[in-house]
Design a protein around this nucleic acid. Structure first.
Lengths: 235, 235
DNA sequence: CGGACGCTCCGGCGGGCACCGAACGGTCGA
DNA sequence: TCGACCGTTCGGTGCCCGCCGGAGCGTCCG
């Protein structure tokens, strides 16, 4: 796939809205995405087929539903990187394809719940995600040495949570900084970020609010986060 | 600028060809870019204006020439990242915008000189660039710890070349891996990669072949690269 | 000073594509 | 088994945009 080909897949407001929504790491149905982007089911169907054919999305058919998710962490990273670049680029109204309609990603910041805590692909984001990243840095679990790295102390800390070292092996970076939309600061991504998020769900530190990407911190989560990281999560 | 807006700037074959050409880090004139991409000057002019307005390119007018270069290292990084993702994505022919014409980036691999040594934005690439990266890793000048980092030994080594520590400060990553097109392996980018490339020019280790991005290694360069890094550069 | 040159603006053309509504088939629940 | 629902396919429409050629303007050089 050429550079123009990949860019072309993301160059449409509707398709971009799909990818942005799927950045929460979950599988959406075609209809949900259509409603989210404000287009008809038939239009959404065509767009989704193109994104799947282009390798950005993976699909899974179950009964009368077509579930769609991002093809993988590398795709999520690519889209995040592009977003973070776009966030820093000047806003040119112009007659181009960038007409800022009501479908922007602005709306994701509207909901206070999402700003507090949410998933970003497969890791924690929002104020909670940034607080975790800050605490991990302050406690020496990760270090910032021209890029984030997991320290031996961090490895131990994760092991105490039940994350095995084997889980962190693979082609994925162990820890990676990911720019947070609402906070404009970095939170933890990569294999360790994903593992931590998974354990946060399993230990019921957090749970989903409805069907969106927003998270609620449970009393158990507040207790453990305070003990383990010194984070005070407001109720 | 929205995600779709940035992607839209790169979603055209001609504009993508411009950006790919400008990845050599040099300033091209509008006419050169037009010829390179095989479009008329008027068409090129419009595309270039859009890229400048979108913040991807910077322009500098001198006399009757309009010089264009990438806006900055972050733009170069963004394009490189997108390319490296695109290189791994499946090639879908389809009726989409990805019709692989004769204007692809394939042609850059045709010239043997560019495969041997060239600039990639502001650092060294090609077999020479990859060899430098390999040697730096083998000699402990940089380390691969979930991302490349400059070691104290590497800092000393650069200092011996006349690169001051102040030069490596800034928001740019000190060392960064950059996927090499022709070699499909990583070479050194980031502030240190740029500084090394600059010194390589100043010390006349390399010089440009004609007006392209291809480089020739001088006898002095072969001698110093052998002594300092143990690299044998074929004549 | 005149001509060559580099670039830009303008009008026009053609194609691609985003979008919709209607019709259809497959799946699930009553 | 029948109806509600989800998704896809197919025409059709309108718009955007990529492209060109020609005119115009400024710059450089002989």
């Amino acid at each position: 796939m050429s550079l123009a080909g990949i860019a072309g897949l993301l160059a449409d407001r509707t398709r971009a809205a799909f990818c942005l929504a799927l950045l929460d790491g979950r599988a959406w149905t075609a209809g949900e995405l259509a409603r989210h982007a404000g287009v008809s089911p038939s239009t959404a169907s065509e767009h989704l087929s193109r994104l799947v054919a282009g390798g950005l999305l993976a699909e899974e058919r179950q009964g009368r539903h077509r579930y769609l998710r991002l093809a993988g962490p590398d795709t999520a990273t690519m889209i995040e990187d592009l977003c973070s670049y776009a966030a820093g680029a000047p806003d040119v109204p112009g007659p181009g394809a960038a007409a800022a309609g009501p479908k922007g990603l602005r709306e994701s910041g509207r909901h206070g719940a999402e700003a507090r805590a949410r998933t970003c692909y497969d890791h924690l984001a929002g104020r909670l995600g940034v607080a975790v990243a800050d605490a991990a840095l302050a406690r020496g679990l990760v270090a910032d040495d021209a890029g984030l790295v997991l320290t031996p102390a961090g490895l131990d800390w994760l092991a105490g949570l039940g994350v095995t070292a084997a889980e962190l092996k693979g082609s994925r970076p162990v820890v990676r900084g990911c720019l947070d939309w609402t906070e404009r600061r970095t939170h933890l991504a990569g294999a360790a970020g994903a593992a931590l998020c998974r354990r946060a769900f399993e230990l019921r530190w957090v749970e989903r609010i409805g069907t969106g990407r927003a998270l609620r911190t449970t009393p158990a989560g507040r207790r453990d986060l305070r003990e383990l990281l010194g984070i005070e999560v407001p109720v």
